[in-house]
């Protein structure tokens, strides 16, 4: 168990990385009026330098600028998909666990049906229904990722609803709705919230995978997946940086977001909150 100093270090280092990333994706594009798609073949595959800190790609485009734009798209996909998947998963899981009976059976068979299809395949099916763009990718990730949250929330609710404090609430006149909102949901929020935060980087990886397969965003649009996909031929030709920097931008924010998720979990747990004197 982490002591308060380790806890604070984890919080601040993760918050710093996430803060820098958010600042970069929110502030840089409007401030720097540069076209991330501007091709300059005279500057192709330049190594990192002061002028181009991340180097340039095989069409002479500045990789730092493309990485910032790519990260913006990937974060948008990650955040929105995780939010949608968590809200849907929590609602389905809580309804199944709290209501039980045929509602539970029907909803969980629905979850089983979705789970029986490999989720990359299901994701590809969803994006194939629409024209390439950000929203089909978000829909694809959300459709394939609410299942685990629904299962986590349902099992939590099932274990909670027979606890004496829930029975005491029922005895005290609480309606089903009040039991769910006042006692069950606050108790499952740490798990649901944690699942949501951890899903953000996972969704970013999915966007990258779909884009890498050529099924995500249009190939000219900067996203971390597209950047890695476009850099494949350069990597084979011996130029590492066009793959390295988008790859690092996928890994480092992932770890920082997971770090923040851990901190959040501790804060939502009253016992841990007291131990850490937060």
């Amino acid at each position: 168990m982490a002591d308060p100093r380790t806890h604070r270090l984890r919080l601040w280092s993760s918050a710093l990385v996430v803060g820098v990333v958010l600042l970069a994706v929110l502030v840089v594009p409007p401030l720097v009026q540069l076209d991330e798609q501007a091709v300059d073949l005279s500057r192709k595959l330049l190594p990192p330098s002061w002028e181009h800190p991340f180097g340039t790609d095989d069409l002479g485009r500045d990789l730092l600028l493309r990485c910032v734009y790519g990260l913006r798209i990937s974060l948008l996909v990650g955040l929105v998909a995780a939010l949608v998947a968590t809200v849907v998963g929590t609602a389905v899981g809580a309804a199944a666990g709290a209501l039980g009976g045929w509602t539970d059976r029907t909803l969980m068979r629905l979850v089983d049906t979705f789970s029986s299809v490999p989720h990359l395949l299901l994701g590809i099916f969803v994006v194939a229904l629409f024209r390439p763009g950000v929203w089909p990718v978000i829909a694809s990730v959300a459709v394939t990722h609410w299942l685990s949250t629904a299962r986590i929330v349902r099992s939590e609710v099932l274990s909670l609803r027979t606890r004496p404090f829930v029975e005491a609430a029922i005895s005290g006149g609480a309606t089903r709705w009040r039991v769910a909102v006042r006692h069950l949901l606050p108790a499952v929020l740490p798990q649901a919230g944690l699942a949501a935060v951890l899903m953000v980087p996972h969704a970013m990886w999915h966007e990258s995978a779909l884009s890498f397969l050529g099924l995500g965003l249009p190939s000219h649009q900067a996203s971390l997946g597209n950047l890695v996909q476009n850099a494949r031929s350069s990597l084979l030709a011996g130029y590492g940086w066009p793959t390295l920097f988008p790859g690092l931008l996928l890994i480092v924010p992932t770890l920082a977001i997971a770090g923040l998720a851990g901190v959040w979990r501790d804060r939502l747990n009253p016992r841990r909150r007291s131990e850490l004197m937060l």
Partner: peptide, 28 residues
């Protein structure tokens, strides 16, 4: 239900860990 008050054996599991004792007392 509300005509019958219940006290359980184990207070640790019978109290919602998120509520203060004041909230617990007036929750009904």
């Amino acid at each position: 239900r509300t005509a019958v008050g219940v006290v359980f054996q184990q207070p640790r599991t019978a109290a919602d860990p998120r509520l203060t004792l004041a909230d617990l007392l007036v929750e009904p």
